[in-house]
Design a protein around this nucleic acid. Structure first.
Lengths: 221, 221, 221, 221
DNA sequence: AATGAATGAGCATTCATTCAT
DNA sequence: TATGAATGAATGCTCATTCAT
């Protein structure tokens, strides 16, 4: 009973973050993952709306519901947040695409899946799309670094599919698979960028068909 | 003789700056045009090397060989410099492309010219290419503004050629010319971006052939 | 007893900074109030010595013992600092004067108190006096804004006292109280300004007697 | 005849400023005086409307109808322009007041003339009044310098009249003439300042009567 | 882990003044 | 004398990052 009153006291404090976190470090620990996630999500939104350079870390923190300093417990710098958004998304896309490709055999169908999912992904989250199509482009250094990382893996998926098709005699053997894969990527990329910049609101993913129509026609043996 | 003395008088005055300046808009007083040009050139270089946001106006001024304040005699702001680089180049590209297209009749050949000149232009000035492929992309607002300006005119040239080819029965009539033109542009754009980001040094323009090979195959009737 | 253990728990937490801060707004966490005060004090000094326009925010910050950026945690701009100096002082003067006037009944004695305290206040802090007599005068906009604010309240005190004296038959009824109050204020103001500009060092407050001698003689019925 | 043709030639050039000025340096010379005057007038207006610190020399030049650089042919610096406005006006006021005082004998009437003319002068040129009542006050250094110059002479006129009145037994002998003269000046000064800051438009000069009513009553023997 | 007050480096822009013409 | 293009020193304010609590 008297203990109870103590418990009540404690319970009252238990609403404050530090008590919860003290309790959950070993067991639940949703805060950690949650906060990193929340910051990443908030940053995507803030970057998309204001542009990377015009976005303040304080804005991200506030949008994520954490204190300014907390951001630095999860990310080394503002730039690393941008990097992380890229990394997380590309890695996921690569993984997802890989799995999806295993379900299909026909190289043409594989490319169709890649293209469709590519646009579908971007079309599903406008803020993320803006970050990918606009904000991530504003830095040579950034693009250089990442063209060597996950992005290369993504392009490699396309390229491997092209080569597969060439070996299968479906695509013309004389084509440079590397260049060809960039052509497809560039075309899809342009669709995405235009979709973002357009004031009109339309579905992005269906454009994959038009792109593929021409592309496949163009590369077929 | 007395006339002579009058002539001398005049000759004497003809040395004063204001008389010379009337005579010499092109020779003696090139500073005006020259400085604007110099600043634009310097800015292209500085932006390409450091990125727009990391470039200081002082860097541009010093690279252009003028004082910091002088920059503001020719441009209202740092941003206007970036805009001017874009404007000048796109306007010129549109004009040049228009003229070139008049020399040819075959839509396929027209597209070939567009594509080749597109890559040739960027391949000829790496700094300018970096500004176009990287720095100009880092701002939604910027891209939105300009997609409606000179850039739209450039895309319209491609689109018009596509439509021309459709009317001539050279390209498939069922294709959406707008989308198709973006596909071509996107493919070329990706070639340019990859060229910039690559550490390897290769000729950019020749890639136009590979792009067109696939593209024309893809759209042909 | 068990209650006691609860109390202990609480006591344990009471050592953390956030609990202390709740308790110690006046003692442990004086930084907040202190820094604002320090900046205001430093600014008064810096403004008085260099003039408002020649004073750098960095000077104020350094004089206050804080970083440049800290100034902006307490004030929105350099101008707001000047405003705050004015506000704080006038508000206090009005309040103080009001209280003092309640202790007296005779309108003549009231004016004497006002005049004496007016000069005494300025005479007690030369830097503040300089800011008031010199720096605050250098802007029409500024003076217009404030003639409508606290300053009006101050002048109203004088005016009310005059009118009171008129009703009491002590001061001539025919006089325009508004103009009369400005005459007194103007005379005192000039004393203060001259005191500041003079290289001689003399007591300012005693001049109130000479001003009042003439003034009261002039307005008496 | 031939000479004539030379004369015609010369006449043609005579429209340019430098030839006119060459001719007129010895005789007409309106440009010099005119331009100095024009700049002073323009500066008064510009300072009054924007404040001294917010006024650009370029604004003054443009308002005066001369080139930026021309300003520096007549004044050493922006500050000297402000000084010159003060000097010119005070010197004139002192001279004018001196002359006016010689027409009168009665010290009371003399003060009346001083006060009336003081307010009349300021009331006649609002821009000049703003510069005097507001812009010139914003600098300790400035006020210090000038309290020792023409301004002192002006105050001395008032003081001398007071002393004259004391000797004549019209004003109380026990009063400190120096302080008394400042009281009068301060009262008038406040009238002027209030007139400027007020949005209401009323005649300034008539206020001299109310000021003098009280002042003379206050100092009379 | 979380907080947010404090820090201080960094920079675009202005504008008084100069000087070649 | 007049011009006005060019200069470059000067500074308020921002914001990523740190760190005491």
């Amino acid at each position: 009973m008297v203990i109870h009153s103590a418990a009540i006291l404690v319970q009252k404090f238990s609403e404050s973050y530090w008590m919860r976190s003290a309790r959950s470090l070993s067991s639940v620990r949703p805060p950690v993952a949650d906060k990193r996630e929340a910051i990443l999500r908030a940053a995507t939104q803030v970057f998309a709306r204001n542009g990377y350079f015009n976005s303040k870390v304080a804005d991200i923190a506030s949008a994520a519901g954490v204190a300014d300093g907390t951001v630095y417990l999860y990310f080394k710098s503002k730039e690393e947040i941008l990097h992380s958004i890229f990394d997380r998304t590309v890695d996921e896309a690569v993984k997802e695409t890989r799995e999806e490709l295993q379900e299909v055999a026909d190289p043409r169908e594989k490319l169709r899946r890649i293209a469709y999912r590519h646009l579908e992904r971007l079309g599903a989250d406008r803020d993320l799309a803006v970050v990918f199509q606009v904000e991530l482009r504003g830095s040579t250094k950034f693009m250089e670094e990442f063209s060597a990382a996950g992005f290369a893996a993504y392009l490699a998926l396309i390229r491997a599919t092209i080569e597969e098709g060439q070996r299968a005699g479906v695509f013309r053997a004389g084509l440079n698979a590397k260049v060809v894969s960039k052509i497809l990527f560039g075309a899809l990329d342009e669709m995405a960028t235009n979709w973002i910049l357009s004031r009109r609101r339309y579905k992005l993913a269906p454009l994959a068909d038009q792109v593929l129509d021409i592309f496949l026609n163009g590369v077929s043996a």
